[in-house]
Nucleic acid binder design. Sequence first.
DNA 1: TGAATGATGCGCT
DNA 2: GCGCATCATTCAT
Length: 201
Amino acid sequence: MPYRKLPRSFYDRATLEVAPDLLGKYVVYHPPRGKIVSRVIEVEAYIGQDDPACHASRGLTPRTRPMFGPPGRTYIYFIYGMYYCLNFVTESEGSPAAVLLRAAELVEGRQAISLPPKAGRDDPYPLSGPGKFCRALGLTTDQNDLDLTGDVIYLQDRNGETVNIQQSCRIGINVGTARRWRFYDGNSGAVTRPRQARRKG
DNA sequence: TGAATGATGCGCT
DNA sequence: GCGCATCATTCAT
């Protein structure tokens, strides 16, 4: 194992420290068959009950429970009737916060991911988009609240590759857009682009 | 090339 | 019932 698996202490920090630090890290997922490795390109921070865009702003519910739990676990939710989104829980237990994985570059395991039925066979960035990422890896709520320091899904440190860290407003939400809590690698083509009607810079 | 829309189901009011 | 941390397709220019 050439790289270090990120320990729980990595996630047990201020979310705005963890989010940009995640860029360039490797997400390793071991489904029952195969192994998929991808490189984190784009993330967004959702922090606390005072952030109106954060699911935790409506309080503790069965759905948002993982965000209120200890750091270093997954928070996967179902949205728009057909998509799942993967988050990494940060900050100490009782402090609800998480980082949404918005885009990644496929590094290893192309044969193990599932592509959309029609288009996308030659998509150079099959993990570009939070919904696309989870669909490709087959992540569902079955993988919700999983320990990120275990062997099923975890992150690895990068190997000193340069990351061009950029920052902007969050995408795809209608509240809390003033917070510049989106971080991405400006050197990667896998970065997602906001829809015109939602463009906020 | 860009904007509008349909698919689709769950959590919460 | 409504809105949603989305995406692919369709339609208009």
